[in-house]
């Protein structure tokens, strides 16, 4: 327990110190990792804790990003209003999609979430008047909260770090709360949960909405980081990358999506230096993880450590 606290303190300090010692390339890479961590952690609420495998989580990230960019660039709304609108809209979208997808379970749920995400993707491509289609939306500037400029990579990194920290803390608290424990109960034994008086559908729907909200937060970070948005962010590959982050790290653990998402982003960045074939590598990693390490890295390492301690 004590060593764990030490590790946390050391990594927290190095995360805060990083922008003062590292170059812009690494700062930006770290920012991308953090955004992916928020996205994977939000998906982990569904996949890991609710046992609901969604292949359409990119819809919420992309939806929030588009609302934010659209209302700011096209309508000229102030950043705070745009952010609130984006999160509210995304949460509402999650409520609607959740109500539809939760009519099914298992593979049906997976197929419906995938299909629904394609609606948003198709809209972004085709509703050119609203989204500027394949050209994407440009011209977004980063906000200046409390008069602080987020234009430099270091400043934006620190803001992202703060929000990531809040997201992970809130999710950790959620998982240990009465609701979080009940959610895991509906994952393992839904029939018994219903017999015990838990409204399984409502518990799952709530989880879907919460997961959608945090994916929306990741979307806001994403769009302010990129200052640009293109329909490809809504593609199945984005959902798949998020899911790979969860599975590779270890679904249903708090550290899993952090490790997994970091791995995916770093792999993607380094791979793109040497090869153009990121999707092929993504596919290969998927196959490898599923066949070799189905539990993910964090539970795998934990098992190794437990064996060593014995």
């Amino acid at each position: 327990m004590r060593t764990r606290g030490l590790y946390t303190a050391v990594s927290l300090i190095s995360l805060i110190v990083l922008p003062f010692v590292a170059g812009d390339f690494y700062i930006n890479l770290a920012t991308q990792v953090l955004i992916a961590v928020v996205f994977s952690a939000s998906l982990n609420i569904l996949v890991g804790y609710a046992g609901l495998s969604s292949l359409g989580h990119a819809a919420f990230l992309g939806f929030a990003a588009y609302i934010c960019a659209g209302t700011t660039v096209t309508l000229g709304l102030p950043p705070l209003v745009a952010a609130v609108l984006a999160l509210a809209g995304t949460t509402l979208l999650a409520a609607i999609f959740g109500a539809i997808a939760l009519r099914a379970s298992g593979l049906g749920f997976l197929m419906i979430t995938l299909a629904l995400a394609q609606v948003v993707w198709g809209l972004a491509y085709r509703w050119v008047g609203l989204t500027n289609g394949d050209n994407g939306l440009t011209g977004l500037t980063r906000p200046h909260p409390f008069g602080l400029s987020l234009d430099s990579p270091a400043a934006f990194y620190l803001a992202t770090l703060l929000i990531t920290g809040i997201a992970l803390t809130v999710i950790a608290i959620l998982v240990g709360s009465a609701y979080g424990v009940s959610l895991q109960g509906t994952r393992d034994q839904p029939r018994r949960m219903a017999a015990l008086g838990h409204n399984v559908w409502l518990v799952r729907w709530t989880a879907f909405i919460i997961a959608g909200f945090w994916a929306g937060v990741a979307g806001l970070l994403y769009v302010y980081y990129q200052r640009y948005i293109h329909p490809s962010v809504l593609s199945m590959a984005t959902s798949a990358e998020g899911l790979l982050g969860v599975i590779a790290g270890g679904s249903g653990t708090l550290a899993g999506p952090v490790v997994g998402a970091a791995l995916v982003v770093i792999l993607k960045n380094y791979a793109s230096i040497y090869i153009e074939r990121w999707n092929m590598l993504l596919g290969a990693v998927f196959v490898l993880i599923v066949l070799v390490m189905p539990d993910g890295i964090v539970p795998g390492v934990r098992r190794l450590l437990a064996r060593r301690d014995r």
Partner: peptide, 30 residues
């Protein structure tokens, strides 16, 4: 039809929570 990953205490807690409004608490550690 038990919760195989949890402790006995957690199992019974889930039963008790089923009838309490506190099951929706998302903030307080159980």
């Amino acid at each position: 039809t038990l919760f195989p990953r949890e402790t006995l205490l957690r199992n019974v807690e889930l039963a008790l929570l089923g009838l309490r409004p506190g099951r929706w608490n998302m903030v307080r550690p159980l």
